[in-house]
Simulated assay, not measured.
Amino acid sequence: MSKTHQPYDAFLVLDVEATCFQGTDFHWPNEIIEWPVCLVRWTDKDKNGMASTLQIVDEFRSFVKPTWRPTLSPFCTDLTGITQEQVDDAPYFPEVMNRFSAFLVKNGLIHPATGERLVRFCWCTDGPFDVRDFVVKQCFISNIAMPHWLRGDILDVRKVVSGWADAMQGLPTKKATLPRRITPNITVQLRTLGLAPFEGRQHSGIDDTRNITRIVVELARRGIQLQPNTYIRPGRRWAWMGKSGEILEEYCLTHY
C-alpha cells in the first residue's frame, strides 16, 4: 500500500442502464432507466492530501421511467434485468435528479440552496459513455439543463486500468492513449488487478457500479492518483435531436 497525493476528497461511481433495442448503438436516443451511485471517501487522508484507502460511505439507486419509448424491449430486459413494472413505478428523470441532489446535500457534497460543490468530488465511470453520452442525451430528452454538479470532473476508470496494465508490461506510455480495438470490460479489469471475480449480475446498474468501485478502491491502494481524464459536452447534438426535448422520429431506427 502506497500513499499518494490525492486532490479529490470524494468520488461518485456511476454506471447507468438505458433503453435499448437489438441493433441500436450509442447514436440512438437511449433513455436512462437506472441511476445507481456509490459514494466513496478516504479514510486515511492527511493534512498534506496523502491517502491510499477508500471506502463506500453511502449508495443511491433509483429506477427511471422513460418517456419516449416507455415500453422496454425484451432485449433490454434480458440485458439489464430491469422489468417493465420497475420502470412503470419509477419517477421520471427530473425527479430522480432532485432526489439525487438531496442525497448529495445529505452527504455534504453540495450546498442545499445553490448546488455549488462544497468539497472536491469526481465522477468515476467505466468508459466515457455514461455522462458524456447517456446523461447528455437524457437531459435533452427531459428538457432540463444538466445539473451544475454533473459537469466536468470525470474519471474513466477503464482508461486508468489500461494505462496501468501497459506500464506494468513495459509498453510505451503513449500507447495507452492510442485507440484500442478491444477495451477491458469490468470483468477483465478485475482480473487484471488480481481482484475476485465480478460480484452480482453483469449489466445490473447497481452491481456494475459496486464492481467499478472495487476497481477504484484498488487503484487507490496501489498508489495511483485519481484524476479526471475525460470530458463532456453538455451541448452535444445528435442527428435525432430537434428542438429541446424533441426527438425526430425520421432519424431513429423503427424499433418498438
Rank of each mutant, 00 (worst) to 15 (best):
S52V: 10
R237Q: 13
I232D: 05
G242V: 07
E34C: 01
W238G: 07
W238M: 00
Q22W: 13
I215D: 01
R99N: 11
E250A: 13
R117I: 08
F140H: 08
P94R: 11
L226F: 05
A90W: 03
V40L: 09
N143V: 13
W149L: 03
A196C: 12
S244C: 10
P70D: 01
Q202K: 13
G23T: 12
V161A: 01
I224R: 09
I110K: 00
R99Y: 04
V157S: 08
I232A: 04
G223M: 03
I186Q: 01
P66Y: 02
I247K: 00
C76N: 01
E95M: 14
H5W: 13
P112S: 09
V96I: 06
V37E: 03
I215E: 01
W28N: 07
L79G: 09
K45I: 07
P29E: 05
S2M: 14
T177F: 14
V16I: 07
L155A: 11
I32H: 00
T125D: 03
G23Y: 10
D88N: 13
W238S: 07
A239K: 12
K47G: 14
L72W: 06
P112T: 10
S244P: 08
C76D: 06
N30K: 08
V16Q: 05
A10T: 01
H27D: 11
H27G: 14
D78M: 08
P128M: 15
L178R: 11
P91H: 09
R132K: 10
W149Q: 01
S62N: 04
T24Q: 06
L195R: 00
R221C: 15
E85A: 15
T254D: 11
S62W: 00
F129K: 02
M241Q: 11
Q6D: 12
F60R: 06
H203L: 04
W164E: 00
A90C: 08
T209D: 03
R181W: 11
W42A: 03
E218S: 03
R41C: 02
H255T: 09
T213V: 08
I82Q: 02
L219A: 03
A10C: 09
Q6W: 04
T4D: 03
I182F: 12
K106Y: 14
D58Q: 12
M146W: 06
R117K: 13
T213H: 00
D15I: 00
C20M: 02
F140N: 02
N211R: 03
A220E: 10
T83Q: 15
M50A: 14
T183Y: 09
W35K: 00
Q225E: 15
E199R: 10
W35I: 01
F100R: 02
P128Q: 14
T77C: 13
K106R: 15
P36A: 07
G242A: 08
K243L: 12
D89L: 11
P7W: 05
V37C: 04
I212T: 15
K175F: 15
Q189C: 10
I56N: 06
V119Q: 10
Q169P: 04
R132S: 07
R132G: 01
L178G: 07
I141D: 04
L190D: 04
L219R: 00
K3T: 10
D78E: 12
A145P: 11
E31V: 02
G152R: 00
R221T: 06
L14N: 07
E31G: 02
S52W: 15
N98H: 13
D133P: 06
P94D: 03
N229P: 06
S101G: 14
Q6C: 07
T80P: 14
K175D: 08
P70I: 02
